[in-house]
Computed example of a mutant assay.
Amino acid sequence: MLAAAAVSPFSTSYKWRVQISGENPEPSLFLTEKEQKVLHALREVDVIGANQLTRIFFSGDKKKAKKMVYKGILIQHSLWNESKEIPFYSLSPCLIRQTGGMEPMSLSVREILSRLVFFQLYGRVKELFPVTIHRSNRRPFLGILVREDGTRFHVGILRGNLHEWEYFLKWSVSDERIILVVEQLPFLKPLESLLQGKMIRVTTDLDLKNTPIEQLFYKWDGDQWKREKA
């Protein structure tokens, strides 16, 4: 039996508030290689947590993230609840209009949280092998992680949208590789009967934070969740 897990810092159970900042100066497009990777990632997935940005792209150097704000490429916003605050970044509105992405003010709290969880997953998967990020235009997927050999992993974040996944799993006949991230495994109980035989691997918010990469994913065997070994 699975032990009760702590509440995820990205849980929809909190009472979240969002503060969206305004326009930056005209952005400079003289970008370093790492800044170009940030530009690509946010063009595909819209927003990223401040800590995620510095950890994943700049090896913990906060000054490089602030430099992208100074250059007019990024804008910092804030998501907070009664106990914590999560600063996060988007591209400047000018760049969003040029690249066709979604402005943060058009995203719900659930959609912002889902994107932050997506980058938690991205940061961990990179420990296994290099992947690039692509936007998914198919609901209920949020994005696609693509390996250098072309293997595609369609990523879904379960955050108050269980009915969408129930509908998809009931009627989908595809053999796509799917990664789902859920706050806690018991949240998937309504879907368990639909998972058998599908190429789906699951991880949780807590596993993304604490679990060794080789034990990160679970597979439903028809009776219970079992950890897979990479």
Rank of each mutant, 00 (worst) to 15 (best):
107 L>R: 12
128 L>N: 12
125 V>C: 06
107 L>S: 06
90 S>A: 09
78 S>R: 10
70 Y>V: 14
95 L>N: 00
81 N>E: 04
119 F>I: 02
126 K>T: 13
119 F>C: 09
123 G>C: 05
67 K>E: 02
124 R>Q: 12
122 Y>G: 03
101 G>A: 07
102 M>T: 15
78 S>M: 07
123 G>I: 01
144 I>R: 07
90 S>M: 01
101 G>R: 09
149 D>A: 08
144 I>P: 00
141 F>C: 09
128 L>V: 14
100 G>S: 04
139 R>Q: 13
92 S>H: 11
68 M>Y: 03
121 L>G: 06
85 E>L: 11
116 L>F: 01
145 L>Q: 13
82 E>D: 09
127 E>A: 08
90 S>G: 08
141 F>H: 08
98 Q>S: 01
77 H>M: 12
75 I>P: 00
97 R>T: 01
81 N>V: 04
66 K>Q: 13
127 E>L: 15
146 V>A: 10
69 V>F: 02
99 T>N: 05
129 F>L: 15
73 I>N: 03
120 Q>T: 06
145 L>D: 06
130 P>N: 05
75 I>E: 00
88 F>C: 12
113 L>T: 07
95 L>D: 00
117 V>K: 02
108 S>N: 13
106 S>F: 10
130 P>K: 11
107 L>I: 12
110 R>N: 05
95 L>F: 04
113 L>F: 05
131 V>S: 01
74 L>F: 00
82 E>L: 07
87 P>E: 04
139 R>S: 14
126 K>S: 05
108 S>L: 04
153 F>C: 08
85 E>I: 10
113 L>I: 02
149 D>N: 14
66 K>D: 01
81 N>Q: 09
76 Q>V: 11
72 G>T: 11
130 P>D: 08
99 T>I: 04
97 R>K: 07
74 L>I: 00
116 L>Q: 02
114 S>K: 15
79 L>P: 06
76 Q>C: 07
72 G>W: 00
66 K>C: 02
150 G>V: 09
151 T>W: 09
98 Q>K: 08
87 P>N: 07
66 K>V: 07
75 I>M: 02
98 Q>E: 06
